[in-house]
Amino acid sequence: MTQLALVIDLNVCVGCHACVTSCKEWNTSGPAGFMSDDNPYDKDPTGTFFNRVQTFEVGQYPDTETVHFPKSCLHCEDPPCVPVCPTGASYKREEDGIVLVDYDKCIGCKYCSWACPYGAREIDEHQKVMKKCTLCVDRIYDQSLPESERKPACVLACPTSARLFGDIHDPRSEASIAIREEGGYQLMPEWGTKPANHYLRRRKTRIKIHEDELIRADNPLKKEQRGPSKPVTEPTLDDSTSW
């Protein structure tokens, strides 16, 4: 079984919103119709998005750290939003685990959005149907695109490669390896939704240099019974002579 998903590396996300804009651009121009906006250039702009980047500040000043946190549908493996849908418009695909909404069947009752603990679904205020991330299902299988571009728009747009895309059930995929080796985790595990998307923690990469590595303990001069010369304190010839 395949379960496509994103792995989002919070360690490298810089909060540039490139994924948000490229997602909107790709999906508003797609065959499923536009994603409507109200007052886009005015006071109180609002609109439909599949993906948003939020910002959190962790810690107490001055020891704070900024975490940029992209959030979209997590394509849960046990999605609570699917069984509640009365029309069957919301469904999870057998073949690749993507959770989708059939816009032609959706009656816009919003019940599924109540049943998603992550707030990943948004009603389109003009088309009156429920919308959410599709993992760019209309481009990842598109044979007319070069293989390297058959990825979600957000993944291609990310300048820091904070977004990995792949089958998390395939242990050799880039996404699985990242989850396994970099400590990938899921959001709100307490609700048993088993989100397919995973996140990677902020992590510090520091090299540790011990003092004895600077003043070499294994200095070969030692073998010749001659310690390294002492730091020079009295004036040298160079200090007193001008050439």
């Binding site: 702009p45 810690g59 107490q60």
Partner: peptide, 16 residues
Amino acid sequence: HNKIVQKSPGMMGGSF
């Protein structure tokens, strides 16, 4: 971390 403050929800004018 015990202290986490949200600085931005990723939009300016509200949403669904």
